[in-house]
């Protein structure tokens, strides 16, 4: 059952920050509510002691999309549906938009926000691996003003981030990748609609001639949280592309994941399938690159 709560609707970021700081233990931000409402219904320990929900929907600047030559900056309240329907995001960040289109159902995508996805930081957050391979940064507002942080630093462990009490994530800054980057996103769920992901993978690769330039790989659901594989990326950057190479990368990814997770009940299935899926993804990316050329 949902406990009795007061809904606070601030009209400005300042007002919101003030309220959050005045009620540090009892106030929580609500954006789309697709995590917090079911969490409250289930009596989840993560949401106990809440007396105020601070609804940010009145603050229009959190819904803006601003593009310049370097970055596209999106407001933290942007929903997945809005993201799917934005041409500039579609053109510049296709992996992110693809992941957005796999989140939950139409109804969930109409409510849920991309910022809420990583602030909740569930292992299966679909948009996190694409955000990570795009080197997304986030902008936070606290009592001491604005500051920025790479998303990969912000995420700590399942359901924990560096968000401090009284702070609001206001924007997500997405640096536009250079033209030679090509990539893809993969999601495996138990079914095709309204599916919680069992494996997500994002790969963004710079391909020059027959060589791998910069490689960015990320996983979700199969790792404790959405994460990049920086060691692996470095190891294979500059390698000549071959079928064997793509298989080696995939097998190494399997090893990295086992290192992070240890053996879990699902490893017997997830670890081989992740490698297989990563190989298929890389093979597709490389052949798409050939076709473009």
């Amino acid at each position: 059952m949902i406990p009795e709560l007061e809904i606070i609707k601030p009209f400005s970021l300042e007002e919101a920050v003030d309220f959050l700081n005045d009620h540090p233990a009892e106030a929580r931000i609500i954006a789309g509510g697709t995590d917090i409402i079911p969490g409250l219904m289930q009596g989840s320990k993560r949401f106990t002691g809440i007396k105020y929900l601070v609804d940010l929907q009145q603050i229009d600047e959190l819904k803006e999309i601003i593009a310049d030559s370097e970055n596209i900056t999106i407001g933290a309240l942007l929903t997945f549906s809005q993201m799917i329907n934005n041409d500039s995001l579609k053109n510049n960040f296709p992996l992110l938009v693809k992941s957005a289109s796999t989140v939950g159902s139409v109804q969930i995508r109409n409510r849920a926000t991309v910022a809420g996805n990583f602030i909740n930081n569930a292992p299966c957050a679909d948009s996190v691996p694409p955000l990570l391979v795009y080197n997304a940064k986030i902008k936070l507002l606290g009592v001491n003003g604005n500051y920025e942080m790479p998303l990969s630093d912000f995420l700590i462990k399942p359901y924990f981030t560096r968000l401090k009490t009284g702070e609001i994530v206001t924007q997500i800054i997405l640096p536009k990748p250079k033209k030679e980057f090509i990539g893809d996103f993969y999601k495996l769920g138990r079914r095709r609609g309204v599916a919680i992901s069992r494996i997500t993978l994002a790969a963004l690769i710079q391909i020059e001639d027959n060589k791998l330039g910069e490689i960015r790989l990320a996983s979700g659901a199969v790792s404790p949280i959405g994460m990049r594989f920086f060691d692996l990326e470095q190891k294979y950057s500059g390698s000549v592309i071959s079928d064997k190479l793509l298989k080696n990368i995939s097998s190494d990814l399997g090893k990295e994941i086992l290192k992070v997770t240890g053996l879990r009940w699902s490893s017997e299935y997830k670890v081989p399938v992740t490698q297989q899926a990563m190989y298929l993804l890389l093979e597709r990316i490389c052949s798409a690159h050939k076709q473009v050329k």
């Binding site: 079928d243 064997k244 298989k247 995939s250 097998s251 399997g254 090893k255 086992l258 053996l263 490893s267 017997e268 670890v271 081989p272 490698q275 297989q276 190989y279 298929l280 093979e283 597709r284 052949s287």
Partner: peptide
């Protein structure tokens, strides 16, 4: 379960985009 390495695919284990 003592042998996690057996979860790592060998080259010949992989299926490709033409046959999966």
């Amino acid at each position: 379960f003592n042998d996690a390495d057996s979860l790592i695919l060998k080259e010949q284990d992989y299926l490709n985009n033409q046959n999966y």
